[in-house]
């Protein structure tokens, strides 16, 4: 059981986190953020394990905290 704290207005939609996530918990949002990108969002139906891989690969530090 894990949880990420995502700042959606920092995301620039490179989606590197989506590739890194082992459970494919992250997906693209359908509404734009303050920067004009479609940021990632957490798919609540899938289970985050709190491995923090998404936070490690995020170049924009949009994933600020990971809890497990």
């Amino acid at each position: 059981m894990g949880r990420i704290v995502l700042n959606r207005d920092r995301c620039k939609a490179c989606y590197l986190c989506m590739d890194a996530c082992p459970n494919k918990v992250l997906e693209a949002d359908t509404t734009v953020n303050a920067l004009g990108y479609y940021p990632v969002k957490v798919n609540s139906e899938k289970q985050c394990v709190g491995c923090a891989m998404c936070a490690k690969v995020c170049p924009d530090i949009a994933i600020e905290k990971v809890y497990r």
Partner: peptide
């Protein structure tokens, strides 16, 4: 807490690089 933004990055940081 297993990961958090490093302290050596400013709290009001601005990363102006291109996506990815």
């Amino acid at each position: 807490l297993v990961y958090s933004k490093p302290e050596s990055i400013k709290d009001d940081f601005k990363i102006s690089f291109c996506p990815g």
